[in-house]
Design a protein around this nucleic acid. Structure first.
Lengths: 339, 339
DNA sequence: CTGAAAGCGCTAACAC
DNA sequence: GTGTTAGCGCTTTCAG
């Protein structure tokens, strides 16, 4: 089924059919209706490739995330999709599984597919890769800082200062020995949280003890095991700052088994997963604007796609993360802040 | 950058360049190397549209889910993507937001984009829509039963018998009044769970009481509110069977506030979210093979795409869900079964 | 082993 | 308002 057949059946030229589809105002009512009827009848849709062979706009954008099972990634994806849809675009979503080669491979595949733009969440690409990307002239936006975030379009959140705020809060409420549990993945998010942690300690004249900084799998078991090791160490910490709520769930389970309560051992997570508001004790955490980051990144991307000239200057947009205090910090004095 | 330029620079015809790319064995080593060097140098990739204008295979499949934030949907998506990637395909993932019109709209967009196949999770399309789909000659596979699952390719799990098993277990362990909390979404999953619930009651000579069957939002608050109403009713149930773990989390929170313990009020959820294994009490639930359903559906789809003739007969593949007993049922007699 | 040339289905100048 | 025609970038006969 192609434009030619429609033209024949409606007894017009293919140009007219094309016009009915693309510039209906140029065609007389009568002809238009005749053509439309035939189109309807034959259930015709124009061939997308032939069309795009000229346009070379695909209305397709790509989005890479390290893990589709992480709720915050999917909130971003949902934000991206919402904008994409309003622009009549579709999103190819790819899961890089935290692997840089997989990421680069996907980027190539997507560019070969002539996507109009690319959104990279927690990307591992470096400056060299970015230069290549630019040579290929594919607009792209990063979500979350990257190894080379200097001069790129990027939407990020303050992992570092949010972490700093969290640790600072622990110190202000009297905690003396604060352990840090990070994910073992090679994304920069971890790095930033570590920096925030260190800054808070330094600011408060406490020293960083590598014995109580752990990296583990970003899952419940990982948190459980890290907590185990910390609880069995000589000098048991009186607070855990944990880089993801998921790991925090495991840690809290282990802590409960040990009989310790929040006033003896405080826990702060990161991500604000819904389950954290339901567990016992409710988890203090850092809430980050994932959905809005997705929306913002997609808007920025489409701005660039639609008006490349107006958007030559790279933009860095920061959306705020903030501490959400609940009972897992066990701080009686500031009960009013409890959410 | 196009094939013509490559041809010119390598001093061969465009045909030869095309052959280097598609049938390298037909070209002499020398010419091939020369062309490849130029391709490398100029960073050329063939235009995907021009290519597909002939093939009309896009290596692109679509997948529709009702909600990208639901973990089980994303496990399916991850399974689908894994297979797609091994077949050098990409996946366009769309979130229908439980809306049938959105679903149909996406289906149309995707078909216009000439995707090679379609996977529909918890679809709301009816027989008429399916017929239209077939007219368009797009292979598709359903995940989860659908309103018209008679003669379609489908991968599903036994929501009904799994629900029946769960309720049966509650009855066998002495529960007399079992409430049911369902999601309010119009997907068939709910319907099936309801049927299983009814079957278990009938089998055990108990009658269905509509006063203790609720539909609510599939989130923590929804579960919380439904539990509230049930706890405030005249005849408080001694068990809740809840169609999703997410709602169960909210319900358990509410139950804890009321001071009731699992021996007085048992709870069974559905989905086996990781957080259920960490909360107090650990949640008895039904675990379903989401990831494997994704893998299986994708494999089936590619079988159909690759060998349409061998796969004219629709297949229905069932993967088993099963009850996972934990403490939220508070059944002391069968403690060994506790996971 | 290589090349010329005919399309794939559509859009957009350019005529009428 | 409508039609003719020349491509878009590639693959694929068909000749050599």
């Amino acid at each position: 089924m192609n434009i030619k057949e429609i033209a024949k059946k409606s007894e017009v030229s293919i140009t007219t059919v094309s016009r009915v589809l693309n510039n209906p105002e140029m065609v007389s009512e009568e002809t238009k209706n005749r053509v439309l009827t035939v189109i309807e009848e034959l259930n015709y849709t124009p061939n997308w490739f032939a069309r795009n062979l000229q346009n070379s706009k695909t209305n397709l954008i790509g989005m890479l995330v390290p893990d589709m099972l992480e709720a915050s990634n999917m909130e971003m994806a949902k934000g991206v999709e919402k904008i994409a849809r309003s622009k009549k675009n579709s999103v190819i979503l790819c899961d890089t599984d935290f692997d840089k080669n997989t990421e680069l491979e996907y980027i190539n595949t997507l560019i070969d597919r002539k996507i109009d733009g690319l959104i990279l969440a927690s990307s591992q690409i470096d400056e060299k890769d970015a230069i290549k990307l630019k040579e290929r002239e594919v607009p792209f936006v990063l979500i979350g800082k990257s190894a080379f975030c200097q001069q790129e379009n990027i939407v990020y959140t303050n992992y570092d200062t949010a972490a700093e705020e969290a640790v600072d809060y622990l110190i202000k409420t009297g905690r003396k020995r604060i352990a840090l549990i990070l994910t073992q993945y090679p994304v920069l998010d971890s790095q930033e949280k570590l920096e925030g942690y260190k800054r808070a300690l330094h600011k408060n004249m406490m020293k960083v003890d590598l014995d109580i900084i752990f990296k583990t799998g970003n899952n419940i078991e990982g948190g459980f095991e890290a907590a185990s090791k910390l609880l069995e160490s000589k000098e048991v910490p009186d607070a855990f700052f944990i880089a993801t709520d998921t790991m925090a769930f495991g840690a809290i389970e282990r802590i409960k088994q040990s009989g310790l309560t929040p006033d003896k051992l405080a826990v702060i997570g990161f991500d604000d997963l819904p389950a954290g508001a339901v567990m016992e004790p409710k988890l203090t955490t850092v809430t980050k604007p994932s959905y809005r980051m997705g929306l913002t990144a997609a808007r920025l991307l489409f701005d660039i796609i639609e008006e490349p000239d107006l958007n030559k200057e790279a933009q860095a947009i920061m959306l705020q993360s903030r501490l959400k205090i609940r009972k897992s910090c066990g701080n009686k004095e500031r009960l009013k802040e409890i959410w």
